[in-house]
Design a protein around this nucleic acid. Structure first.
Lengths: 238, 238
DNA sequence: GATGTAAGGTCAACCGTGTTGGCATAAGGG
DNA sequence: CCCTTATGCCAACACGGTTGACCTTACATC
């Protein structure tokens, strides 16, 4: 048994699998992403990934020390991909909005990895680059340092908080998730108006809105708030 | 096998377990919270909970339709406790703020359980009561239904999102958590100003603020935003 | 080219998970 | 006091991650 996984750079012999595929860290991660897309977040299992690769499940342990390690390898890419899929326009508010949505979308494309890493500070290069970008946007927009840090903190934690929340929902089995979503039509929509007047009055609106993520709404509220504060500060100087 | 779980209200015969304990939904949930505190979020298993109760694991299925159902019951308990620790004053904005903080605190008192249930909709009475309360606060403050539902959705998901994020951090070992917090002084504070000018310029502020929860800041931003919207709508009517 | 070494693929097994069908027993209404 | 049935218990299933032993073949060396 391989107690120590051979690092990717030290690999030399690439032996084809019984079914003919030649494995690599990159191929495994890519295949894991495909399996996640096809079978949902709860569908990524060692056995299924092995089948998808045309290899024995235990072979994965030659490349990763466990499923946790594999999740991290996937997660490591997410923040970087968010940054790669984003371009600046010069409008600080629009830029922060699109960056936030890019981060949210990037993580939620792989909820298992997201749930595992959302609340950690990795301190790795691609994450630091995103932090530097955010602070740069705020400071060059005219926010004083203290305000820039406050908005940065709220922005990044808000984004990761919703990643954790929404990923948690996506990690559930398909059955459990649809059950949760149907709650708004099956239970809340049928409550008696006498004891629950406010829910009864808004049942239709709730059923339509609750299955969606509230992230964009809260993000907009935060940015609106920051903009107002920036305008107030600017006005005070004149 | 019990395909239909007997509802708690219809239970009559309470037969002691082989080890002498008399089961109930309440006792099971309380014991589950204890197991979670002692063994962590991943440590709550049917077999372990059965042992802690002095009962066979399969007995749990006489009370809950599955572990999923049990998770809902735990979340329900935490939400109920939040509501119990809260009192209304009549000022909608202050009330929502204190209710949000109460929910946040209630869940974070049991971080393992919070991490497990924050993203679930239980549809049980005490959670429904909280939802009814929030909608009631907003509607009687003068928000039109569509706006009330939008703010309600943002409020509850924001609160639970930060519960999930902050619980994730609390669940880490003491060592891992302090390591994460020190990242802001050990790594970010030492980045070269040439390549990371914005982080370097704000390093001290970051180190001071990042270890705290951003929940109050974001919550205030949301409420401020909602208040402004309410005022604008009211003004338009005149 | 022949040969030795070990990387890396495979197989069978282990243990822990949620969950279920069948059975035993005692609670409590008639 | 008896009979029904709620409710606890037992054994077993399928599936999960993971591991140790084995085998095979790619490559370095001569």
């Amino acid at each position: 048994m391989a107690k120590q996984v051979v690092p990717e750079s030290a690999r030399r012999r690439r032996r084809p699998t019984r079914q003919g595929t030649v494995l690599s860290e990159k191929l495994i991660v890519a295949t894991a992403l495909r399996v996640l897309r096809e079978h949902g977040a709860a569908g990524l299992t060692a056995r299924r990934l092995g089948t998808a690769l045309g290899a024995d499940p235990s072979t994965l342990y030659r490349y990763f020390s466990g499923m946790d390690d594999l999740s991290r390898a996937i997660g490591e890419e997410l923040m970087g991909r968010a940054r790669d899929n984003w371009t600046a326009t010069g409008d600080w508010r629009a830029d922060l909005r699109s960056l936030g949505l890019a981060i949210h979308a990037s993580y939620l494309a792989h909820p298992q990895a997201a749930a595992l890493t959302a609340s950690r500070v990795t301190g790795r290069p691609r994450e630091i680059a995103v932090d530097e970008t955010i602070l740069g946007i705020l400071r060059s927009a005219g926010f004083p340092d203290a305000a820039a840090v406050r908005v940065y903190h709220a922005f990044i934690d808000l984004s990761l908080a919703f990643v954790a929340l929404d990923a948690g929902a996506l990690v559930l089995t398909h059955e459990a998730r649809t059950k949760d979503e149907e709650m708004w039509t099956s239970t809340y929509a049928r409550l008696p108006a006498e004891s629950y007047p406010n829910i009864a009055a808004t049942a239709r609106l709730l059923a339509a809105r609750m299955p969606l993520s509230a992230y964009p709404v809260v993000l907009d509220a935060l940015l609106e708030n920051a903009a107002a504060q920036l305008a107030a500060d600017a006005g005070r100087e004149h």
